[in-house]
């Protein structure tokens, strides 16, 4: 973590030095954006959409200026946020907390200085600090997938589930999924953690395939895991036997749904572009009187072959 931060802080300091000279005029505003660095597919997508939104807004509103900081861990993120307040005199902060607990007090301190605070995706541990909360819908993510399983399967059908890294987020998704399929007679043979990782998911699925002769469907709960799962199924030559539902809307998967792949009937979104929503709304709050305070929960939508083209972003890394 420390290693990764070294270059980034250097870059940030350089950025601060060059832009710090631009004095804040009365009607100009500076918005700080603090997000985790692009360590895996989803965060890569999030970084991409954050940069895109900033570019777009800087072109639209010349009076807006942005400071973007990406951090490899919570401690670094706290430093970044403090630096933004101390040296850039930000008027608003958009933050996706690396972890809820360590970021709560520093963000609260920012709020107490009268700075607008937008919190994205992971909430702070004390409610009511932020002016605006933008997030994806984790229970909805599990529920939407579960409802599709109930529509397609019935009494006595067998499924396996791959879970993510053990976290609250994963628990919320899985609980909602289990609740959605309750009473449908669908039999969950097994659940194991594939850690949102292709290789881990490949290994877990290989073992599921050795263990169970009959599997009707797989809830891979993530698109990276779905890739590993599909490969394991192909290796076992059981492609005709079961379908797979991933999640989050990775472009390769969306493309295959668009092409009508029978193994990938649907997907459930959990868009990394939610950071763009947060930045846009914050910008609106700065430049206009549009009321944007409150909570903005982005629904988890079902992607089907019919609507897949609306969710396909070939330029994004995710």
């Amino acid at each position: 973590m420390i290693r990764r931060n070294f270059l980034k802080s250097a870059a940030l300091v350089a950025g601060l030095a060059s832009a710090g000279a631009v004095a804040a005029q009365d009607e100009s505003y500076t918005i700080g954006v603090a997000i985790p660095s692009a360590t895996h597919g989803f965060m890569g997508g999030l970084n991409f959409h954050a940069r895109e939104a900033i570019e777009r807004l800087e072109a639209t509103y010349p009076q807006l200026e942005f400071v973007l900081a990406t951090s490899g861990d919570a401690g670094k993120m706290v430093n970044d946020v403090e630096d933004m307040v101390a040296t850039r005199n930000i008027d608003a902060l958009v933050v996706l907390p690396f972890e809820s607990e360590p970021l709560t007090a520093p963000v609260q301190a920012v709020k107490e200085q009268g700075i607008w605070v937008t919190v994205v995706d992971r909430g702070l541990s004390v409610p009511g600090i932020e002016d605006l909360y933008v997030a994806g819908d984790n229970p909805g993510f599990g529920r939407e997938a579960g409802e599709y399983f109930v529509e397609q399967l019935g009494e006595g059908d067998d499924i396996v589930v791959l879970r993510g890294i053990p976290t609250t987020l994963d628990n919320e998704r899985v609980e909602a999924f289990e609740k959605a399929i309750e009473g449908s007679g669908i039999n969950v043979l097994d659940m194991q953690h594939g850690n949102w990782n292709r290789d881990d998911a490949f290994n877990v699925m290989q073992d599921f395939l050795s263990k169970y002769d009959k599997i009707d469907a797989v809830w891979a709960s993530d698109d990276d895991m779905a890739i590993g799962v599909l490969e394991a199924i192909a290796q076992a030559g059981r492609d005709k036997e079961m379908w797979v539902v991933g999640g989050a809307g990775m472009k390769e998967i969306i493309k295959r749904i668009m092409d009508g792949d029978p193994q990938l009937p649907i997907n459930v979104t959990y868009p990394p572009a939610q950071i763009a929503t947060a930045i846009e709304l914050t910008a609106l709050a700065m430049v206009s009187d549009t009321p944007v305070t409150g909570r903005f929960i982005i629904g988890s939508q079902r992607v089907t072959p019919e609507n897949a083209k609306d969710f396909y972003f070939p330029e994004s890394p995710f």
């Binding site: 290693r3 692009a38 597919g41 890569g44 994004s316 890394p317």
Partner: peptide, 11 residues
């Protein structure tokens, strides 16, 4: 980090 950079944070 070189890998992450080459992949632009993705795959």
């Amino acid at each position: 980090s070189l890998t992450t950079w080459l992949a632009d944070g993705g795959t």
